[in-house]
């Protein structure tokens, strides 16, 4: 009887360990809603993995990006949908995006959209992320590239594990490299510049006054 208890405790421990560390079962439980993965590759090769839960049966690729919480900048083109200008702080400005959707040359990179096929291959998205459908267990890929995806070969379960899914109810995101900070001026530089602009305003005002005085005198 004592041996049976030992075996039961051991099996319970194994089950608990497995339940804690095992990757989530994609699409196994319809009550838990849908889940989809994201793999984002920046220009320097840094990777971001995200695992997003959503209650609907399907959402668009752009909606998946928005719900993942990764920094995103899009340009709306009305009925044509949204263009991805920046992901994770990388990409082109909104002005450039509206002009050319970041494609500034023949071999210039842009945020290229891929979808993982059933056999794990990255297939270029032909419909665009605003129209494409993401269902439970799907994985979308985004790469700042002009041709090849350079996205890693991975399974949906591995994406969930890398992203750290299960730690909270919200989207799980993991980055191989921290995000770069945007170029911005410092407060000291700004203060000096504001002082210089103020001085220019004073000189301009004095110049207008002098010019008018001179003209009225003439």
């Amino acid at each position: 009887m004592h041996r049976w208890r030992c075996w039961a405790v051991l099996l319970l421990c194994v089950w608990l360990v497995g339940a804690v560390f095992a990757p989530p079962m994609v699409g196994a439980d319809p009550d838990r809603g849908s889940h989809a993965g994201l793999v984002i590759r920046r220009a320097d090769g840094a990777l971001t993995y995200a695992w997003v839960a959503f209650p609907e049966p399907e959402i668009s690729g752009v909606e998946l990006l928005h719900r993942s919480g990764v920094p995103i900048l899009t340009a709306g083109f009305g009925g044509l949908g949204e263009a991805i200008c920046q992901l994770e702080g990388e990409g082109c400005s909104l002005t450039e995006c509206r002009k050319s959707v970041c494609q500034v040359g023949a071999n210039a990179p842009y945020w290229r959209y891929f979808q993982m096929s059933d056999d794990g291959e990255w297939v270029p998205g032909v419909l665009g992320a605003s129209i494409s459908k993401v269902r439970d267990g799907d994985v979308d890929g985004w790469s700042w590239t002009a041709d090849e995806s350079f996205l890693p070969t991975i399974t949906p379960g591995e994406v969930a594990v890398k992203a750290g899914a299960g730690a909270s109810d919200g989207p799980a995101v993991w980055r191989s490299e921290p995000l770069a900070q945007p170029q911005a001026g410092t407060l000291r530089e700004t203060g000096v510049a504001l002082g210089l602009v103020g001085a220019i305003v004073l000189v301009a005002g004095a110049g207008v006054w002098w010019a008018r005085q001179h003209r009225s005198a003439a």
């Binding site: 920094p71 995103i72 900048l73 920046q86 400005s93 909104l94 945007p182 170029q183 911005a184 001026g185 410092t186 407060l187 530089e189 700004t190 000096v192 510049a193 210089l196 602009v197 220019i200």
Partner: peptide
């Protein structure tokens, strides 16, 4: 976009 940053001030240009 996407976040408000302080513009770079170049005193030579001013």
């Amino acid at each position: 976009y996407p976040s408000m940053v302080i513009p770079v001030a170049n005193l030579l240009v001013l």
